[in-house]
Amino acid sequence: MKIKEMQLVSFRNYENETFTPSPGIHLISGENGRGKTNLLEGIGVSLSARSFRTTTIRDVIQHEKESAYVKTIIDLEGFDHTLEMSIRPGHRFLWRDNNKMKTIGEYKRGIGVVVFQPQDLNMVHSTPSLRRNFLDNAIRTIDGLYEENVKNYYHLISQRNFALKKHKREKNLFEVYDYQLAKIGSYILVERLKNIKKLNNWAKEAYGTISNQRDSFQMNYMSTLPISSDIKELEKMYHQLMRDNLYKDMEMGRTTIGPHLDDLRFQIDGKEAKSFASQGQIRSVVLSLKIAESLLIREALGSNPIVLFDDVFSELDPIRREKLLESFKGMQSFITMAEPIEKIFYKEQLEDIRPIKITEKGIEEYSF
């Protein structure tokens, strides 16, 4: 997959900007406030109809403007497609190849996007929910059924937890919740386990490349449930555990087992990353996971996703920076930098890489 042309109208600080990307890697420089991250956001919105920076899409509309508009021409498996999106307060209107799309799923069909933001680094040290979100988001991109099941699962957990807090002791009510949760939760667990094996293998390889084989990475899935490759057997065990834990759950006021409580363990040279990793190692871990996510998408969709990495080179030594760029080869990538490009790379290192700069005039070619 490749973006051939993109237009942003009244989007953040872009009044009317047309950008024609190259097929490969783009390094994006510019002073703070010029719109480097806004450009990445515009690309992400144009491809997914969602912003990775805000849950309220109207936030992207330029100040004092009534609407924003993005248009992108993409090459998908050798065919050009035109994506258009009009954004108004409370509404978004989507078109694909001049046909109005009813759902975001229809709009972004066959399209993959991988995003890195500096706050993603919190994944290593912070709560398990961020690590679960990484895994769930990766699988959602390649499997719409998974996204639907995750949504239904958390809705059921919310309903069951409400009933637990109210100490409702209607056995039939919990029997319904527990049966449904065991069925959907088993599906989620099996899909997570299947995909984490692939992600772990790719992340290990990517981490080895970025670190220049100086240390090794391992990721493991930590389940609150017994693990079985037989989904029917898993459903039975899950259901029985829900029944066995009912009174404990009532005392706690929440559901104490299930995929909503599972975690990922990251290790570097066999040690817990959240306790022992340096800042450079943490960044390398998260970047490796993002590269693994892109490979998972490529395997499922048959083409590389678009890669959007914001402020990615901070706290990486020169070897890790150069090795990271090697990992992006073959993917259309857009990478912002906090510093001028010549402070980090020699011109000779940027063969087949397009440096651009965001100025007060808009998107310009970078000159050394």
Rank of each mutant, 00 (worst) to 15 (best):
A163M: 14
Q267T: 14
F217I: 03
I341A: 06
Y247S: 10
V307E: 02
I111K: 05
K323E: 12
P259I: 11
R34S: 15
T55L: 14
D97Y: 11
L47G: 01
E293C: 04
K166R: 13
E106S: 12
P340I: 12
Q281W: 02
T54Q: 03
H167S: 13
G24A: 01
L164R: 02
I335V: 14
I111F: 02
P318V: 01
L94C: 06
I358N: 00
E235K: 09
K166F: 06
S67L: 14
Q119T: 13
S51Y: 08
T72K: 10
A163G: 08
M6E: 03
I358M: 06
S46C: 04
I139F: 01
L164P: 00
G44E: 06
L156A: 08
H239M: 13
H260S: 03
H91W: 06
L173K: 01
M101G: 08
N245I: 10
M331L: 15
G110N: 03
R298Y: 11
H63Q: 14
R160A: 04
R92D: 09
V60I: 12
K171H: 09
E66Y: 06
M331G: 02
K347T: 11
F162N: 14
L261T: 04
N212H: 12
G30P: 04
V113L: 05
L39E: 08
Q349D: 14
W95I: 00
Y221V: 10
F313K: 09
H239G: 09
